[in-house]
Design a protein around this nucleic acid. Structure first.
Lengths: 135, 135
DNA sequence: GGTGTTCTCAACCAGATGGTTGACAAAGGA
DNA sequence: TCCTTTGTCAACCATCTGGTTGAGAACACC
């Protein structure tokens, strides 16, 4: 379970029940019992889910007597959006450039059938294999 | 594996090797062999990873003779950012309001010690239990 | 002190996941 | 035609995951 932060956040939100809890926590803190109430699972299961979310930094827990109010940490979302936006933008940029190329083609050139051949070996960096792609 | 789309996308990106492949695909399409090259795993393993990404709609594959060029589908990222931004905004909104309340407190009220008691039972809606939080 | 409430920990189980090897299909080139 | 390249499929294996039950810790209240 020593995964990188980004993997943990994505994995934490890959579960619909956990996403549902996050959605509810966006409306205010809640105890474990309150969170478990609408679901057809034991409190223990919910407690495990919360541990996953906490481990990923998505939520934090205080101590209030025997209760453990859960609090949504909106900050981690930045981590994801940054990663997503980075590569989305890069990909879109690439298509914009491709469009330019196609538009600027002199008329006597055949307009390329389907763009078959793989991108011209423009691999940006041999991205240091399994580092987690989190530069 | 009949998970909802959002779960599939999050799960697909929860693996560092898959995220790394996405990062590289943002720079241009690539074949399975090219993608596998920098990693210390078999081509079969990479093929499996690509199936996960394809199943989640993150990539698509063409057919080019015996090659299968892989293409990044930037569109699915919208799905994620929408979900993320929605609850991030909701949570931040909540804190803005909390700040307002604290600022507008009459001076004779004790400024609240550490904010201990759970949020005032303001659970917005019993959010239709295990629907997947994908409204 | 005893009781009830809230929550976590440990052990267990079924199913998913990520990796391997081996076989094979499909296409290009000798 | 035969061989090589490229990739998938199938079987197998170890580990992770999400659920359960049972036990117990920590605290409030009688």
């Amino acid at each position: 379970m020593a995964a990188d932060p980004l993997s943990k956040v994505f994995a934490a939100l890959a579960d619909p029940l956990r996403r549902d809890m996050v959605a509810r926590l966006a409306g205010g803190d809640a105890t474990v019992g309150e969170l478990a109430e609408p679901y057809d699972v034991t409190v223990q299961a919910v407690s495990k889910h919360l541990k996953v979310l906490e481990d990923a930094g998505v939520v934090s827990r205080r101590r209030d007597a025997q209760r453990r109010p859960v609090h949504l940490e909106a900050a981690v979302f930045d981590l994801m959006t940054k990663w997503i936006e980075r590569y989305r933008r890069e990909a879109e940029e690439r298509y914009r450039r491709l469009d330019d190329v196609l538009r600027d083609l002199p008329d006597d050139v055949e307009p390329l059938p389907p763009p078959t051949s793989t991108a011209p070996s423009r691999r940006p960096t041999p991205p240091s294999p399994p580092t987690g792609a989190t530069p």
